[in-house]
Design a protein around this nucleic acid. Structure first.
Lengths: 340, 340
DNA sequence: AGACGATCGTACAACGTTGTAACACCGGTG
DNA sequence: CACCGGTGTTACAACGTTGTACGATCGTCT
């Protein structure tokens, strides 16, 4: 059906290898021949067959992106940025969803679908830091996120601790002293929750404010509903608070809703800041202050590092890259008029 | 590096074609030989090479999904469902973003990346119904969405007109009579806006309510910010209204925010219903009534139809499939206590 | 006992491409 | 005039797989 090198060659009256040489810009092809071949290529609409090229070269021209699920806004936006960055390098992206499930995450590393790509961007959730060893695979792999830090592979992540500390300090700068933290994961040391909580504690400590366990609320997955539940739990404790650091925006938006239901004024009574800078935060009422973790930069860096690995192999030492963060001030932490 | 048929054959002491026969479950292989070969396969961790298989079979085992952008929640969830449905059929998904740009959409149909997949799920935005002819391509193509209806290819879409009519009738059932419509696209006949507006008019007509142009507000892209602007425009017109049909949820959430800023009570003063059933609607305050357009079913149907096309070629007549919709009643259209 | 059928294994070609090596041809030079 | 370097083209092999055609072996039936 579609034209091959031989078809073009027949039309141009040359051998099919000459056509290949033209396509690949090899030297030692006369201008006349080149023109003749090019004309035949155009006439037949010839396109080199990708599968054959892949077989020959060992490259597919695709990279994989494994994330928990695209329905989570954070990963959707990450995927968006990754696809955009990859497109600029003429590479396509195959997306796999793991559901954050350990078994499926391992499957991504070993399954036969892996062969479809030249390398993998992997954002694990079910694996833990102890699983670092499982990442010693024989294909280019770049790790994303906060689950695993000691892996044997390149790693692109955000400045969770510093950014969380800055977010907490932003609340303290407003004069708030009772800052609740929403979304902790009991016993977690690394991982987004553990790291962001560490930043929270560091901020308190730096300002000489005692850490109060009663202000820290656990939550399951970081969905809006869990933010709402965490806020309800906090209110039930009856503990006083004048600010909230939600460990991500979804939690913050859920908490915001509950506070509004309860007649708590934001930011007058309670200031709140989230983390991630998802779009919805711009349009909530009040709009949500947050931390922009530099998502676009993460995607760009990750694609860059992965393609470099694919190009140059595993000789180079592993790299640990962090994106720059930025506090985004919106209405939920607006400075109030000084009260008489 | 990785094992090939020949490696396995050498280890098992048979010819490499015999190994192939074992892998492909061909008949006439003795149980002993089969076991011997299987042992060698396991020992070497042999996996058939996908590129070689592709070259040989002409199938890649991948399908493409072209959408405007993943950052839009609707498309992210669509992609999620498509990937999930494809995974069950052991097919991977390559996602391309067009930005809704006409040129890039055409590029998706003709570009060389196309070769990476066996077929394409295409959700156009920049193309219009007149471009149907451009869809007469020589590879399996399934159209999604509301932009093009007369194309020469399979089409999976939602019941826009009927669902919009049902949404409007839901508002009318509350006793509301001045129903505003947000998010129209001037002059559009088909396309989501045109179709949903048609449903809106049909509902009014069926109830004998005059269509009032002053209640219909144009909006650009259906983002939250545009919903907010449309509501502001409506309020500035000074026209009375007691209900709002927002042509999608994002618009509804933007409009909701503005109404709250303006002290309009929802649903007491104004009831509002959206369209799409995005997750955020569950957690807004008040939670948002909406139309569940059957997204999961769309994805499932689309993958099914595409794979069937890939399997059976273009003989079968083109199919036009619609998912079932469902009105989701939440707080924003809650029935009020009868007022004295 | 010889022939034939059933059962299993192997050699060869092809998918479309690209790298390597070898081959023709040309003008120029000794 | 023979030889050589440079230039353009061609033949061959290989990437790893699978289908087809053929070959070998064994048992069974007449």
């Amino acid at each position: 059906m579609t034209a091959t090198l031989r078809d073009v060659a027949r039309l141009a009256g040359v051998s099919f290898k000459t056509v290949s040489n033209v396509v690949n810009d090899h030297p030692y092809v006369s201008d006349t021949t080149r023109a003749k071949v090019q004309a035949a290529i155009d006439e037949l609409g010839y396109r080199p067959n990708r599968q054959a090229r892949s077989l020959r070269s060992g490259r597919t021209g695709a990279i994989g992106l494994a994330v928990p699920e695209l329905s989570l806004a954070y990963f959707a936006q990450l995927a968006d940025e990754v696809i955009t960055a990859a497109e600029q390098r003429d590479v396509v992206v195959v997306i796999e969803q793991t559901g954050g499930d350990r078994r499926r995450e391992l499957d991504v590393l070993t399954g036969s679908r892996r062969q479809m790509t030249d390398g993998l961007l992997f954002s694990p959730l079910g694996l833990s830091n102890d699983d670092g060893g499982l990442l010693a695979v024989d294909f280019p792999l770049v790790l994303l996120g906060e689950r695993i830090f000691d892996g044997p592979v390149d790693h692109v992540t955000m400045e969770n601790v510093d950014a969380a500390r800055a977010a907490t300090e932003h609340l303290l700068d407003l004069g708030r002293r009772r800052v609740a933290a929403l979304g902790a994961h009991e016993g977690e040391v690394i991982g987004s929750a553990g790291l962001r909580l560490r930043g929270y504690r560091a901020a308190l400590e730096a300002r000489g404010i005692a850490y109060d366990e009663a202000l820290v609320v656990d939550a399951g997955p970081w969905h809006r509903i869990n933010g709402a539940e965490a806020m309800r739990a906090l209110l039930e404790r009856g503990v006083e608070f004048d600010a909230v650091f939600a460990l991500n925006d979804e939690l913050a938006l859920g908490a915001l809703r509950v506070m509004q239901e309860e007649g708590i004024r934001v930011p007058a009574d309670v200031a709140i800041i989230g983390f991630d800078d998802v779009d919805e935060g711009k349009y909530s009422l009040p709009s949500l202050s947050t931390v922009d973790p530099g998502r676009r930069e993460i995607a760009r860096l990750a694609v860059e590092v992965l393609l470099e690995r694919i190009e140059n192999g595993s000789e180079a030492p592993r790299r640990e890259l962090r994106s720059a963060y930025r506090i985004v001030e919106r209405e939920s932490t607006a400075v109030l008029q000084p009260q008489g």
